[in-house]
Design a protein around this nucleic acid. Structure first.
Lengths: 205, 205
DNA sequence: TGTTTGATTGACACTATGTCAATGATATAA
DNA sequence: TTATATCATTGACATAGTGTCAATCAAACA
């Protein structure tokens, strides 16, 4: 047994346990009620702690939710950091398609939580900022990829790489939300292929 | 004088005037404080009416804001309905560019209000739905255009027109918000050209 | 065992919402 | 002109949530 809690004095163990109880209860309350309708009162009730206790561990509802979000966000960061070094246009297409699939699939795997995240982004400036950071990290990464493709003479050099990277991420993000909110309206594969084809080849002959 | 109010009995005139006072005060309060921080109390104070009066004319803060939004939304509908019947790829490019410019310019002209709209979309499901309708109207219109271009053999027929229309609107919308929230970060013309070029021609050679 | 430290608590002050019975002003009918 | 009906207006009230803090309780330590 190497549970890190074993080494701590009983009092800190208790504190950690209380914190965990609040997080677990918080997750349940958020999933059941959505972000706006969830209240601290519901959380403490479910966690079976006193009212003030929640405020000892988290500044407010937003901070509690951000803590819950963090693991999820790290998964997104991982996808953003995927390597990209194609030698041909075809290889680029396959690579891009793969990354799009990973991004969308991750969002769908965490669908219930992502729905709450979307709601929370609109309501809480702190959470909005958190998502903004993820977005910029993706865009930064795409920018590197586009510059690489341009240097390799694979991609059109007259396009502004920064704007192109941003636009490309935006398309992905919006379809991601659409899939999360409205899972059965689209076939995932169709979305991936169309997105990637449009990006690499454009609409007109 | 053909002011429609002249023909109404004095009592209804008074009622309309009170409603107008509330709308005007509401607009000021929203612009000064943003959507979330604005309160009904601030509005009635500015409108110099009793507290309950606001609730006579509007169900709640959301409804009051939606009423304020409506004129703005009609301007967007106008842009969505622009005709599109190009004969050549070049003509299509110019047409599209023009519509993109009108869309982005409109949002920038109404920048202060659009900022509040963005905030309100995240907070209020009713307002979110209102924006959703505008979005779908644009996408519907783009879909017609794409089908037309495909029928004319200008656009690639293997692309899914519904998904392509959606993706294209999403890119426009996201850059619109980016410009509204962050006006000086980008040059409008660069955004328009890059957006349109990507859409019509894609990234890869 | 007594003392200190820090985790836990719920009562409290505060802010906002939406409702409603009472009030007041205008329209209508006698 | 006056009496009555109608409807706009009002603010006090019930309700619901937030965040704070002084008091309490239990573990750690000397």
């Amino acid at each position: 047994m190497t549970n890190p809690m074993d080494q701590l004095p009983a009092r800190q163990q208790q504190a950690l346990k209380t914190r965990q109880k609040l997080l677990q209860a918080g997750k349940e309350v958020f999933l059941e009620n959505g972000f706006q309708k969830a209240t601290i009162s519901q959380v403490i009730k479910k966690a079976k702690t006193g009212y003030g206790t929640a405020y000892v561990y988290f500044k407010n509802k937003d901070e509690l939710f951000i803590t819950l979000m963090e693991d999820l966000m790290n998964l997104f960061y991982k996808v953003a950091e995927m390597p990209f070094m194609p030698q041909t246009k075809e290889e680029a297409y396959e690579n891009i398609k793969k990354q799009v699939r990973m991004f969308l699939q991750l969002a769908l795997d965490e669908r219930d939580m992502m729905k709450i995240v979307k709601e929370a982004i609109g309501v809480s400036p702190e959470i909005d900022h958190k998502w903004y950071m993820i977005r910029e990290r993706f865009i930064e990464r795409i920018l590197v990829d586009i510059r690489y493709a341009q240097a390799q003479k694979l991609a059109k050099e007259r396009l502004n790489p920064a704007l192109t990277a941003r636009g490309w991420f935006y398309s992905n993000e919006m379809f991601m939300w659409e899939l999360v909110m409205n899972k059965d309206k689209y076939k995932l594969d169709d979305v991936i292929v169309n997105l990637t084809s449009m990006y690499t080849g454009g609409l007109y002959e």
